[in-house]
């Protein structure tokens, strides 16, 4: 029962590891080159998923400030409870310089998700697709040379032909 609780409390991380191992298995054991590349992408997305999940906070919003916070002069036109975002008391306003944009606005750090993992992973996705493209280009080149994208057949040809 204890091990069941240990798994169910952090089931997300367990499933990330399962997905990652599926990708690793495909990269090692699959015979087809395109299957290997799909496995590489699955491995990559599992790691990105883990990084993004580190930045999750309970009860936090997306890391974009609300329109009402950025444009406080619109307070009277739009009706709603703008007092919900009361200034927090974590001491960030102590060093209010004169050259800050919207110096009266105080953002609570726990209201928004952590943007740092998002940034790192955003570029990783786009670089991932270009590495996938390079891998597919190499696959096409191999097919042009050997007429096959099965690893065993290619190895056979290399052994017998050269």
């Amino acid at each position: 029962m204890e091990i069941f609780e240990a798994i169910s409390a952090k089931f997300n991380f367990w499933i990330y590891i399962i997905i990652m191992m599926i990708g690793l298995y495909a990269m090692i054991a699959k015979n087809n080159l395109i299957k290997k590349l799909i496995g590489m992408s699955i491995f990559q997305t599992a790691i990105i998923l883990f990084y993004v999940s580190i930045g999750v906070k309970d009860g936090a919003s997306i890391p974009i400030l609300y329109h009402d916070q950025v444009h406080p002069e619109h307070h009277d036109e739009s009706h709603g409870d703008h007092s919900a975002h009361s200034p927090s008391t974590d001491g960030h306003d102590s060093h209010a310089a004169e050259d800050r944009y919207l110096p009266e606005l105080v953002v609570d750090g726990n209201d928004f998700a952590n943007p740092l993992p998002h940034v790192l992973m955003l570029t990783a996705i786009v670089v991932g697709v270009s590495t996938l493209g390079v891998g597919l280009a190499v696959t096409q080149k191999v097919y042009r040379e050997y007429g096959s994208i099965e690893e065993s057949e290619i190895l056979e040809m290399i052994k017998s032909g050269k």
Partner: peptide, 24 residues
């Protein structure tokens, strides 16, 4: 998970472009 930028990128890149590359 509140990572809208990452989700947007994945929707454009993963579901759109990389599937097209694989099909090509």
């Amino acid at each position: 998970m509140a990572a809208v930028d990452v989700a947007f990128t994945e929707a454009a890149v993963g579901a759109g472009v990389s599937a097209v590359f694989l099909i090509a």
